[in-house]
Nucleic acid binder design. Structure first.
Lengths: 232, 232
DNA sequence: CTTAACTCGTGCATGCGAGTACGAGTTGTA
DNA sequence: TACAACTCGTACTCGCATGCACGAGTTAAG
């Protein structure tokens, strides 16, 4: 409570906000090799070499995997998982916090890409089923990252990124309640929490070997459909 | 009253060795200070001074609290939470793993004390409700510990301790399925997982301030009752 | 083919938490 | 009261992860 935070130090974590704050002013030995890794993600990508891009992608892909294997995975572990050197990783992300932030953004973008194609109209129950079917594993992967990032990335960042995905689900649940398809005796927040919990449970059971991944969406849907149904 | 040698003194060294290794012989007070803290928990408690016992209890009580505030709490943090010095804590538990193990045992014993009084007969659905009502916060507290302990206490220890509590719940669910009160189209393992998940979700929502603790059991039960009900 | 961009090992400074060692002071209890 | 039992600060050692500095080698792209 007094102080804490591993090394992430949380304070900064480089937002995408303004232009480059990275330009070294007049410091004495300051002018070094300028890796543009330190630039905000936005204006990079212009100059990137193909292999660098590949490595970046490899890191982003490896991060959730390594973190799922071991939530306490170090930067070195992640680098190994990505098949590159630790220093190369630092070339792309200058701190652990920045890496987690980027991995989170990447994961959520990926999820968005899938989720945004799901048809949310029609029967809310069916729509919920479609949503879960097409994304439970993806969302779960992200939520694994989320747990780890919680301690090292500022809370407002997390909320901000999570918002869009959550809003979609919440909207659906609200509509379902309004149309009397979902029960109205429980708050939407709770239904949302239960939905997340069910997906997490499925993921946990799956990695524990007690549940075949292919069965997961069926179980989740069977459970939620009945749990959420309005008592006619 | 040279040496009372009440099992205590000698036994310390006895960890696994002989009883009276402390040769009363020669030097008056030459012997080192032997804290019996390092004894197996079993044979302690005979000789304990009142304040030591109090401190031990304070540590055991503080551990889940400190760990809930911050899952990465250090030994020092826990000592502060308990209101004692770090070294005193080490006097009672010689390693972090031992502390967590003891806290887990303590928590589960406490839970057992409550759970064993719950009537499990009659309508399985009602019994499930009673079980949850009387223990969700307790079980959740333990499960908070569990998550932390996972990495530092051997898995078999965990299983072994958890077994009794889990068997009770599983038995109830199985009976419910057998009596056609709970749905049979989903495996018991899954129902169990969902139950845990719901309790965890309630705890999380509660600490996040989105759910009044008093409402928690009602929400959990309302959700599970419908989710588990057999389709008549 | 030339060069900037990139990889990546080695080495180092730093910080932090777990445990240990020592010992002086305090307190419960016989 | 006397003494063992206990508390608890100080000051280590140790291991480990982060992040920086340097620099030589490698690779993609104009």
């Amino acid at each position: 409570m007094p102080k804490q935070n591993t090394a992430g130090d949380g304070a900064d974590a480089a937002q995408q906000g303004g232009a480059s704050s990275a330009t070294t002013a007049g410091e004495p030995g300051a002018r070094k090799r300028e890796k543009n890794a330190s630039k905000p993600a936005a204006e990079r990508a212009v100059n990137q070499r193909a292999d660098a891009l590949r490595n970046r992608a490899a890191i982003l892909a490896a991060t959730p995997i390594a973190l799922r294997k071991n939530p306490d995975a170090s930067i070195a572990d992640i680098a190994v998982e990505a098949g590159i050197g630790r220093m190369t990783l630092y070339g792309h992300f200058k701190s652990r916090a920045e890496l987690l932030d980027a991995a989170l953004v990447d994961g959520l973008e990926r999820a968005e890409a899938v989720l945004s194609t799901v048809d949310l109209d029609g029967d809310p129950a069916a729509a919920l089923a479609r949503l879960i079917e097409s994304s439970w594993s993806l969302l779960d992967q992200v939520s694994g990252l989320l747990v780890v990032a919680q301690k090292e990335v500022p809370a407002h960042r997390i909320r901000q990124m999570h918002e869009k995905a959550e809003a979609r689900m919440r909207g659906l649940l609200e509509r379902g309640q309004a149309e009397d398809v979902f029960r109205g005796d429980l708050p939407v927040d709770w239904l949302l929490a239960v939905t997340h919990a069910a997906m997490n449970a499925a993921a946990a059971e799956s990695t524990a070997g007690r549940l075949r991944p292919a069965d997961a969406p069926r179980y989740i849907n069977a459970t939620l459909a009945q749990a959420f149904a309005a008592t006619a």
